[in-house]
Simulated assay, not measured.
Amino acid sequence: MRRDDRDDPFDEFFRELERMMNDVMGPEGDVHIEQGGGGSRGTDMHLDVHETDDQLRVVADVPGVDKDDIDLKCDGTVLTIEAAGTHRDYDDQITLPARVDEHSANATYNNGVLEVTFDRAEDPSDISLN
């Protein structure tokens, strides 16, 4: 059952994409593209990870939630983002491409865009054998 997409400006685009995929797959396959949202739990969010030599920055689209309803956790290798809004809930875990110092985290949220910046963790030290 599809959610009500009457207010979705991309509904026509997704219907056409679904039709084209069904044409490609032929009668053997049936493709149905589910869009995020609609009150479902764990809606996938769009995010980007940017790396520099000494920092790692995660930028995620989390529209429709209040700043106070966003919960962030990091263990140095995985960032967990949980957010609950009136129409959408987000629950994602992002495996970071490099180990970070979770205590250096700095997060901002502005106009539906969440940005979390970490310092990279120090490289492990080599231990010399005596």
Score class of each variant (00 low, 15 high):
45 M>R: 03
125 S>E: 14
37 G>E: 08
93 Q>G: 06
60 A>P: 06
59 V>W: 02
41 R>M: 14
128 S>M: 09
72 L>R: 03
62 V>A: 06
76 G>M: 09
29 G>H: 10
80 T>R: 13
28 E>D: 13
82 E>T: 00
115 E>Y: 01
17 L>F: 14
37 G>L: 07
83 A>E: 09
47 L>H: 15
30 D>H: 11
62 V>W: 08
119 D>Q: 08
127 I>Q: 10
18 E>G: 12
84 A>K: 10
127 I>V: 14
7 D>P: 00
93 Q>L: 02
126 D>R: 04
111 N>P: 00
60 A>D: 06
108 T>A: 09
60 A>K: 01
93 Q>C: 07
79 L>K: 04
61 D>V: 00
25 M>C: 11
128 S>R: 09
86 T>L: 12
101 D>W: 07
78 V>L: 10
82 E>S: 07
29 G>K: 03
91 D>I: 01
100 V>M: 06
42 G>F: 14
37 G>Y: 06
45 M>I: 14
78 V>Q: 13
75 D>L: 09
125 S>D: 11
8 D>R: 07
92 D>E: 13
98 A>L: 07
22 N>A: 05
8 D>N: 14
119 D>C: 03
26 G>M: 08
1 M>D: 08
90 Y>S: 01
73 K>L: 11
99 R>I: 00
78 V>E: 15
91 D>T: 00
1 M>I: 00
41 R>Y: 15
122 E>M: 07
110 N>V: 01
84 A>L: 10
19 R>F: 15
128 S>T: 00
11 D>Y: 13
58 V>H: 05
116 V>F: 13
34 E>Y: 14
42 G>R: 06
36 G>Y: 05
48 D>Q: 12
71 D>V: 09
14 F>V: 06
115 E>H: 00
97 P>S: 02
3 R>I: 04
28 E>C: 05
58 V>E: 10
70 I>T: 02
34 E>I: 04
70 I>H: 06
126 D>I: 02
112 G>I: 01
31 V>W: 15
